[in-house]
């Protein structure tokens, strides 16, 4: 058998009695609590003062470095070009001329010979 649904007023009365019921004998151990240290705000460390300045300096350094790297392209010497001509092409262009240049002795060489 189920009990009848408690009406609003009965519930209010029960809740009021529930809330007003005395709770006897609190027993907080004050002595134990007083041995605990209190958390006080620690004074600001010297490092904390310098931190924003350090961050700003780092940022400025990064910007300067970035700028220098960007400008260095403008002043850099032109890139070294690697000869694309192959020995065979050079030879084909003037093999005979080159041969003559290498093996034609100068006047001093002729004297020596």
């Amino acid at each position: 058998m189920t009990a009848a649904q408690p009406p609003e007023t009965e519930l209010d009365v029960l809740l009021a009695q529930w809330a007003a019921a005395p709770v006897a004998g609190a027993s907080v151990d004050v002595a134990a609590i007083l041995t605990l240290p209190q958390h006080r705000e620690a004074p600001r460390r010297a490092g904390a003062v310098w931190r924003p300045a350090l961050m700003a300096a780092s940022l400025a350094l990064m910007v300067a470095l970035g700028g220098w790297l960007g400008l260095s392209d403008r002043f850099a010497s032109p890139p070294t070009q690697i000869a694309a001509a192959t020995p065979s092409a050079e030879a084909a262009a003037g093999e005979a001329e080159a041969f003559a240049l290498v093996f034609t002795p100068t006047a001093a060489e002729e004297d020596l010979i």
């Binding site: 609190a26 907080v28 004050v30 609590i33 007083l34 605990l36 240290p37 209190q38 958390h39």
Partner: peptide, 14 residues
């Protein structure tokens, strides 16, 4: 309750 009072003491300066 014990914990709450302990916190009241330790965090009191705040």
């Amino acid at each position: 309750c014990q914990q709450a009072f302990a916190r009241l003491w330790t965090h009191g300066p705040r």
